[in-house]
């Protein structure tokens, strides 16, 4: 339990640090937001008035504290370009990105773990080598190019979906999920090959360790050694890896949304960046980073729950 508490504290500290860095970057560096908001209509008096209205004349730390407090409460500020509350703008985008990430992770786990086990078990066989070669190629395909190829193959040639014909989850949940499968595959593909490669080499590496020899010496067969002894040890680094993959999945989703014409967090982030709409950019970045930190924290907790060595370290 102590470990869990410690983990949560470090997670919170990292979150605060991230929010501080983001706030620092977007309020100090870009210059005067009042000026930016007024644009060409700026006169010194109007800027001054607006600065007061926006609270920009207060000390930096006070502004940060205020921003953080309202952010935690759910008030993420107001968009410069649209004048809408940021929260409202993001609310219907979040489910899209979440669906895509969860689907990708599920695809990665479902495909790569059986493949990794198979290749490690049949190390050196023809199938193993074919999968190895395929892996190398797939790893080199950027997610958006995979998206384009999928559009080409499944959309244009096989006509399994309409390219660019995004179906909102408000219209039809089934249609939404059916459409989201394809971008999720595009995001998952390169990650699948990395996971397979890592799991395979992990399993093979573990198989060479002393404890597997002990396991054989007790009369275990190959299968027994693999499933009862090696698998759990080899899964530990995979869990960490999947946690880190989540970061890449989010990055991938920003780009792949573009390929499939999905109006998710990625699109709104890009338009906000080009419009210099900093409240929106800040909110999205903090949300994404928070998601990454929380997911990785959870992964760490799962890890320590599985690995007895860490469990003890925290408690003793």
């Amino acid at each position: 339990m102590k470990y869990v508490g410690k983990k949560i504290i470090t997670m919170c500290l990292t979150l605060i640090l991230v929010s501080f860095l983001v706030f620092l970057c977007f309020t100090v560096i870009p210059g005067d937001p009042a000026l930016a908001k007024l644009g060409t209509e700026a006169t010194p008096e109007r800027v001054e008035a607006l600065r007061k209205e926006m609270g920009l004349d207060r000390p930096f730390m006070v502004r940060y504290g205020d921003w953080l407090y309202s952010f935690v409460k759910g008030d993420m500020g107001e968009s410069y370009s649209y004048g809408l509350p940021v929260k409202e703008m993001l609310a219907d985008k979040v489910p899209i990105t979440v669906t895509m990430s969860v689907m990708s992770i599920l695809i990665i786990v479902a495909v790569s773990i059986p493949l990794g086990l198979y290749t490690a078990k049949h190390e050196g066989s023809v199938t193993d080598r074919v999968i190895y070669a395929l892996n190398q190629v797939v790893m080199a395909v950027p997610a958006f190019f995979a998206g384009i190829l999928i559009t080409l193959l499944f959309g244009i040639v096989l006509k399994l979906f309409t390219p660019g014909g995004y179906i909102s989850y408000n219209q039809s949940v089934a249609g939404f999920l059916g459409y989201m499968i394809f971008p999720s595959i595009a995001i998952a593909l390169p990650k699948i090959s990395m996971t397979v490669k890592l799991l395979r080499s992990g399993l093979i590496g573990e198989k060479k360790l002393d404890y597997t020899r002990t396991a054989y010496s007790r009369g275990n067969n190959t299968k027994g050694v693999l499933y009862k002894h090696v698998l759990k040890n080899a899964m530990l680094p995979i869990i960490t890896f999947l946690g880190m993959t989540f970061t890449d999945i989010i990055a991938g989703s920003i780009i792949v949304e573009q390929v499939f014409g999905i109006p998710g967090m990625g699109r709104i982030l890009l338009t906000s960046i080009s419009n210099r709409d900093y409240p929106v950019v800040m909110a999205i970045i903090v949300c994404l980073a928070a998601a990454v930190i929380i997911i990785n924290g959870l992964v760490d907790l799962v890890y320590q729950w599985i690995d007895p060595r860490i469990r003890l370290e925290g408690e003793s």
């Binding site: 002393d210 404890y211 020899r213 010496s217 007790r218 002894h229 040890n233 690995d307 060595r309």
Partner: peptide
Amino acid sequence: LQGDDIAIIFQEPMTSLNPVK
């Protein structure tokens, strides 16, 4: 026979046991 009639112990007790069991 292995583990039943013939058993073996190794040099490195630190690494010869499975760490997660």
